[in-house]
Amino acid sequence: MKGKTLETTKTIALVAHDHKKDELITWVKKHKDILSQHKLIATGTTGKLIENHLGVEVKRVMSGPLGGDQQLGAMIAEGEIDIVIFFWDPMEAQPHDSDVKAFLRLCVVWNTVMACDSSTADFIISSPFMGTNYQVEAPDYSNYLNRNVQK
Rank of each mutant, 00 (worst) to 15 (best):
M1S: 15
K2H: 14
G3R: 09
K4C: 02
K4F: 09
T8V: 15
L14R: 00
D18T: 14
K21L: 03
D22H: 14
E23S: 05
W27T: 06
K29W: 07
H31Q: 08
K32L: 07
D33W: 06
K39M: 08
L40V: 12
I41G: 03
T46G: 08
I50G: 00
I50C: 03
E51G: 07
E51R: 09
N52I: 07
L54F: 03
G55W: 09
K59A: 13
L66C: 03
G67E: 06
G68N: 07
Q71W: 11
Q71F: 10
L72C: 05
A77W: 02
V84G: 08
V84L: 11
V84W: 04
I85L: 08
F87R: 04
D89K: 12
H96G: 05
D97Q: 14
V100P: 00
K101C: 10
L104F: 07
L104M: 15
R105C: 13
C107I: 05
V109R: 06
V109H: 09
A115C: 06
A115N: 01
A115W: 04
C116Q: 14
F123L: 14
I124G: 05
I124Y: 04
P128Q: 13
P128T: 07
F129A: 13
G131K: 12
T132D: 14
Y134Q: 05
Q135L: 15
A138Y: 14
Y144P: 01
N146G: 05
R147K: 14
V149G: 01
